[in-house]
């Protein structure tokens, strides 16, 4: 089950695959990687297909945009087109056989392959398990690990607060656009206050940030985790 794959090992596997895909720059390989990661997710995880689709949709839109960009604006291209609406038949033929097409496909499929790996990680990794694994396998100091978790669990509160601040501006007939310096400033003031009170709360409960502490559950590194990593990297490195 992919949910049980040690998150640190899973993350490093993704990094290695990204580097290999970047170096090999092979359209066929990109497609194979993308499809196998999605199928792997469908077969070996509890993720619902609908959820995978919801994450895939923006990835496909991004890949399509990149595809058109590669098609129109490849380096050393002698074809000049301004928009997809005024491509003539001859141009379309020239395009599909040109180097632009090769580049466009390389760019778009590479993005999809990255997305396949990213989605697999995002959907099969529990956030808290990930951070605890970073602490035990990759030596992230507890101060940072628990700091990240505390901030993460403030997320819903922060979303509400931003909405409240935006509404407060709108009722006074001012723009509630989130990038307005006034709104950012209000949110920054809240953030500083939160960080101080959460730090105080954690310290008053005895949190010292030292590594010598007890842990209720330590994510373990098993042979299976490494085997899965070796297989994934091996397949990406040597297939096709």
């Amino acid at each position: 089950m992919l949910e049980k794959w040690n998150p640190s090992v899973k993350m490093i596997t993704v990094f290695l695959c990204v580097f290999i895909l970047t170096v090999r720059n092979n359209t066929k390989l990109n497609i194979i990687v993308f499809i196998s990661f999605v199928i792997g997710m469908l077969l070996f995880s509890d993720v619902k297909p609908g959820k995978i689709f919801a994450f895939l949709l923006p990835a496909f839109i991004a890949a399509f945009g990149l595809f058109i960009m590669g098609l129109f604006y490849s380096r050393n291209s002698d074809i000049s087109i301004r928009t997809i609406f005024d491509i003539s038949k001859e141009q379309l033929e020239a395009l599909t056989t040109s180097g632009n097409m090769v580049t466009a496909l390389q760019l778009a499929t590479r993005l999809l392959a990255y997305a396949g790996m990213g989605i697999l990680f995002s959907l099969t990794t529990d956030g808290e398990y990930f951070v605890r694994s970073l602490m035990h396998q990759l030596r992230l100091p507890p101060k940072f690990a628990y700091g990240i978790l505390a901030a993460f669990y403030l997320l819903p509160m922060m979303r509400n607060e931003l909405r409240t601040v935006q509404t407060a501006f709108r009722v006074r007939n001012m723009s509630g656009f989130s990038l307005r310096p006034k709104i950012l400033f209000t949110m920054l003031v809240n953030s500083v206050r939160w960080s101080e009170s959460v730090a105080m709360a954690m310290e008053s409960k005895g949190f010292s940030g030292e590594a010598e502490r007890t842990y209720h559950d330590i994510p373990k590194l098993r042979g299976m985790d490494l085997a899965l990593a070796v297989v994934s990297v091996g397949v990406v490195a040597f297939i096709a």
Binding site: F144, A151, F152, L154, M158, S178
Partner: peptide, 24 residues
């Protein structure tokens, strides 16, 4: 050295701009 409140400030700002970024 990093104090706990430094870590929290930076992490909370990370979340804040994650939320702001979603709007964009």
């Amino acid at each position: 050295e990093w104090k706990l409140k430094d870590v929290l400030l930076v992490a909370i700002l990370g979340v804040l701009f994650g939320v702001v970024y979603l709007g964009c």
